[in-house]
Design a protein around this nucleic acid. Structure first.
Lengths: 197, 197
DNA sequence: CCATTCACATACCCCGGGTATGCTAACATC
DNA sequence: GATGTTAGCATACCCGGGGTATGTGAATGG
């Protein structure tokens, strides 16, 4: 195997194993040497590729974050109406809290480990961006009351992050429906008085 | 000084110093030996009183949590109408994110350090409880649509936690008003069609 | 075919949470 | 008021694990 290919293989293996362990054991519970050993390498490889434990975690977070954003966007795009796109995206996000990777890595550890600022920047680059876009589109269309997008985005983003954790915890399927319908009510408050729909 | 008094004095000094440092340096940044040294004691005292670093943090969290809950409840009680009580409580909570102790200890570290389950239990015992009570009262009065209280509570609790961090970060005073008015809109969605007000 | 570099492995440092044990002054008991 | 006892720490130590400095051998390139 060529050297560049070997490098990439090791990198991907570390990433995959790290992702698995971060999801199961949480950031603090993961020990770098074991991650490396599990793929037949040592700490040296990990530090060579990612610089630090936090560096590996950061990369894992970006990966999971991006995948989640794509899933949410796909669910939204499957709908025609902007309002239904927003609802579908929210539902998908709420449901994905049951995914251990999303739950542990994104919702539990990421904000505290990366710090709120960096976490928010990464979140904005993926899922929160779709939310802000959807809200902007609805305002543009006159469907919801015109207002600053950012505070509203943060309110809804926080609401869904927390709810996703709540849903995931009580593995019940009914909780998802309850959260969705409660969120629906809240969203009704945004509807502009003269708006269509 | 009597022994019991000395014990309590040391305990309170550790608590106060720990609280100060947790707020400034974050949980990971605090080293227990330094906390003890700052009050003229050693690690031994800290472990004698709190059992572990996490034990001290847990106690600090409970303290800050309780104070915040009291502040929110006081702001709510200053209002007459149930709806205004809810709004006043929410506003006070959002504004208190600028308090470094609330921000760093409660909003950033507590969920990740204590784990979501324990954090939620503590949150429910203080601030989230007031929120749930206010919502229940409004439903009872027919002011908002009857529905399960818990999912709604978690949505709003999460929304406000996240927004409080957002407000605290961009120290701007205008952001608080933006968040409050956005939250107001969302709450409008809860109003029962036939309800008073 | 030789020099270089790159992708790691190995060995080591050291901070900091946790623990086991020692010490002393306060309390109880007679 | 002497004496055992305990409670409230201090001291000394352990050790896991993140980080680093250095070694090494195999692929690259000239």
């Amino acid at each position: 195997m060529t050297r560049a290919a070997q490098r990439e293989a090791t990198r991907l293996a570390l990433l995959a194993e790290g992702r698995r362990r971060f999801a199961v054991d949480g950031y603090q519970g993961v020990v770098l040497a074991e991650v490396a050993q599990a793929i037949g390498a040592t700490k040296g490889a990990a530090y060579h590729h990612f610089g630090s434990k936090l560096g590996l975690f950061r990369t894992v977070v970006a990966e999971v974050q991006e995948e989640l954003g794509a899933r949410v966007a796909a669910a939204a795009d499957a709908q025609d109406e902007p309002w239904e796109q927003l609802r579908a995206g929210c539902r998908t996000f709420l449901a994905s809290g049951t995914d251990p990777e999303v739950r542990q890595i994104l919702l539990e550890d990421a904000p505290a480990v990366l710090g709120w600022d960096e976490w928010r920047a990464m979140d904005e680059a993926s899922s929160a961006r779709h939310l802000a876009d959807a809200l902007s589109a609805l305002m543009q269309a006159g469907a919801i009351t015109a207002q600053p997008v950012e505070p509203l985005t943060r309110l809804l983003s926080g609401a869904m992050n927390e709810s996703a954790l709540w849903i995931a915890r009580s593995g019940d399927g009914a909780t998802l429906e309850q959260a969705v319908s409660a969120l629906d009510l809240l969203l009704q408050g945004l509807r502009s008085p003269g708006g269509r729909r």
